[in-house]
Design a protein around this nucleic acid. Structure first.
Lengths: 142, 142
DNA sequence: CTATGATATTTGTATATACAAACATAACCT
DNA sequence: AGGTTATGTTTGTATATACAAATATCATAG
């Protein structure tokens, strides 16, 4: 008789979700120091790195939908960390000075997050797994 | 210059989430035939398989928190697919006749879901990945 | 040059999920 | 036995996310 908790261990749905939640939680802790969720933090990092980037590109880059990106931007705008300009149908997103100033702290959080799981899983192993998961995600549907 | 979309491909946070969302979507399609989300469907399957199971066990089994399990149960109760009895601090969850009658269809959806991704990724490969992800999830924090 | 279709963005709405707190009950010391 | 701690469950509340629809702009064909 199989242990109850292991019943669904071979199911990709559960494994993927379980790992995502664990990872999310770990990431949340790392970024709590700057009072941002991981999604917000990565979006901010991306905008600092690519000033003027457009929501659609952000969405592709972060594997989110455009509508979600809008919502994330709204929150970061309310914190005065970035702002938008709109010309025609194009919107450009820029960091504010306050946002840019956070870069060192953001990088530190990112580094800490990576160190956290790399310590447990090994650097190569965790990178390998990440690439593999993204590869699989790409294969599933279009 | 690295392609923008690949910037975070080595980050476990993105890879895990991207895969989880893709998997979720694939699962949703499979279970849309019975008008249930994957979480609801798996919970129902579990209760049919283990009548009288308690919320805490369900939570452990499905990798969800107890409060989420309560919410899922409420919805399935409103659909008359299962019901609860409470004695003392213990709650037992049972399928209704209507719920039990869905078993063949639920199994079919589950099978279709597995076939869907196994066809793309290979049976062994997808099972291996699932086990690995769960293993890693287990290692990350406690 | 206009109409039709494509693209970019935002809003309305729904939902799954989690956390913290509230409750209730059981268990366990001393 | 009685008080304290642990356990099981449910609510109040917050939030990230997505889908569908609305809106606005651009491109293109005839």
């Amino acid at each position: 008789m199989e242990k109850l908790e292991n019943r669904y261990q071979k199911c990709l749905y559960f494994s993927a979700n379980a790992l995502a939640r664990k990872t999310e939680k770990l990431a949340q802790e790392s970024w709590s120091k700057v009072d941002l969720t991981p999604s917000h933090a990565y979006l901010l990092l991306l905008v600092i790195d690519e000033p003027g980037i457009q929501p659609t590109q952000i969405a592709a880059c972060l594997h989110l939908t455009p509508s979600t990106v809008t919502r994330l931007i709204l929150k970061l705008e309310s914190k005065k960390l970035l702002h938008r300009t709109t010309e025609g149908k194009i919107t450009n997103v820029y960091p504010t000075a306050k946002g840019s100033n956070m870069l060192p702290k953001l990088k530190a959080c990112q580094q800490e997050f990576f160190a956290n799981y790399a310590q447990i899983l090994g650097e190569n192993e965790s990178t390998r797994l990440a690439l593999q998961m993204l590869n699989v995600a790409g294969k599933l549907k279009g």
